[in-house]
Simulated assay, not measured.
Amino acid sequence: MTHELLDRALIEEATKKSGLIWVRGGGHPAHPGPGDEVPTRPLWHVWADGAAFLIGDGPGEQPLPGLADGGDAVVTVRSKDKGGRLVSWSARVTELTAGTPEWEAAVGELKGKRLNAPDGEAMPERWARECRLVRLEPTGATAPLPDGSLAQRPVPTSATTRQEIPAALPRLLLKRRKRR
C-alpha cells in the first residue's frame, strides 16, 4: 500500500510540475490490431483532479493520435530542470463531453495555460465546437525506466521553419555588439 501511495505522489508531482508530457496512445480498445501502435508525442497539458487533461485535434491545436475514449496510454514525464526522464505511468483515456461540469472545470484550468491562442476569450467556445478534451487518469504503479535511450526520429511535419541564415546576419549581430 505504501509503495502505491509513493508511486501516486511521484506521478502527481512530476506531472504537475512538467509543462510537457510524452504520450503514446494505444489506439481504440475495440479495434486493437498489429501495426496500430501510435508514436510517442510531446503534448502540453494541465494536471487537475488527479489526472492530466489535454486539448487538441482541432484547427491550430495539438494532435491527439491514438487517444481514444476508453483506451490506454503510456505517459512519460520529464524533469522541468534537466529534461531527463523522471517517471512513466499507464493511463486510462476518457474523452469529456462539452458542457458537462467536469469539462467546464478542465477548460478553466487549460485556458490559463494555453499560449498564443488566436481567439483569446472565445477559445472555450471554439474548443467545444472543434476540439477534443481528453483526461488521462493514472491506472496503477509506475513503469520501470528503460536502461537505454528511447530517442526516435521526429514525426514529419509541415511546421518546420528552419532555413539558412542570411549571409549578412553575422555581420549585423557583430556590429551591434561593438557599438555597445
Rank of each mutant, 00 (worst) to 15 (best):
A73E: 02
A168S: 09
W44H: 06
Q62C: 05
A9E: 08
W22V: 14
A117E: 04
L133R: 01
A9F: 06
P144H: 06
G71W: 01
A106T: 13
T15P: 09
E61S: 15
R179M: 11
S158Y: 03
D81K: 06
L86Y: 01
V75N: 05
G60S: 11
L54H: 02
G25S: 01
P34K: 07
A168W: 07
L67M: 13
V134H: 03
E104I: 06
R177V: 13
E130H: 15
A9W: 04
S88Q: 13
T76Q: 08
A68L: 04
I165R: 00
L115P: 00
G120M: 12
R41Q: 09
A106F: 07
T139V: 15
L136G: 08
P170M: 10
R132E: 07
W89P: 03
A30K: 11
E125G: 11
E61P: 06
G148T: 05
G99Q: 01
T157Y: 00
E13M: 03
A9S: 05
V155N: 01
E102C: 07
E37C: 09
E125I: 10
T160H: 05
R85H: 04
K178M: 03
E130S: 15
L86E: 07
A73D: 01
L169V: 15
G19L: 08
I55F: 07
L86A: 02
E13K: 08
A9L: 13
P34W: 03
G27L: 04
L136D: 09
T94D: 12
E61Y: 15
R179T: 14
P138S: 06
R126S: 06
E13F: 10
R180N: 12
W44C: 02
T157Q: 00
E109Q: 15
I11K: 07
L110S: 03
N116T: 04
P154V: 11
L145H: 11
P156W: 02
L169H: 12
R153F: 07
C131T: 12
E95Q: 08
R41H: 04
K16P: 01
R162N: 04
A68T: 03
G58S: 10
A14W: 01
P118R: 14
R153E: 13
G66R: 00
A122W: 03
G33T: 01
D69T: 12
E4P: 00
A141Y: 04
L10H: 06
P101S: 15
L10Y: 03
D57E: 14
A30I: 05
V46G: 10
G83P: 06
G71I: 02
Q62V: 09
H31S: 08
S158V: 06
S158P: 02
R41I: 08
